[in-house]
Amino acid sequence: MKPESAVVSITVNGTPHRLEADTRRTLVDLLREDLGLTGTKIGCGQGTCGACTVHVDGVRVLACLLLAVTVEGGQVLTIEGLGTPDGGLHELQQAFIDRDALQCGFCTPGQIMSGLGCIGEGRANTAEEIRESMSGNLCRCAAYPGIVAAIADVAEGQGA
């Protein structure tokens, strides 16, 4: 093995993987290129749009700003890991459909993963709080009102 590569052990959506990777490989490229999980999108590659949001060890992070080698041993959850084993949707995915919280759909997986984090962190109590907590996820179609409504629907349902 070349010094510029490393073995990365990582669990993605419950499945453990052990891969040799270029040390330069980012988590988002590892997910997409090595594991074929292309639901996580690359919008900017520099932490400014949120399209690559996934969860690592239970918190929402930007997969474009993490080198895969630094996530060694991590538990990763991506958009493909949501929903039920029989193909059913996660309730936040369903809420996005119900609220038509998208247009082009490119930022949508990141919005959903971030929205889950927002709810999990207890920052979905008011529309204003959701908006601030979700501001790391840009939507150029500006489907923002629907996204906020979808997150609020799920947060309310869980709080009830």
């Binding site: 932490g47 949120g50 949001t53 918190v59 929402r60 992070v61 930007l62 700003l65 993490l66 971030s114 984090g117 927002c118 962190e121 920052r123 907590s133 979700m134 501001s135 790391g136 996820n137």
Partner: peptide
């Protein structure tokens, strides 16, 4: 500062 995702790491 930044965004929730960035503050998390």
């Amino acid at each position: 500062a930044a965004s929730a995702q960035i503050r998390n790491v």
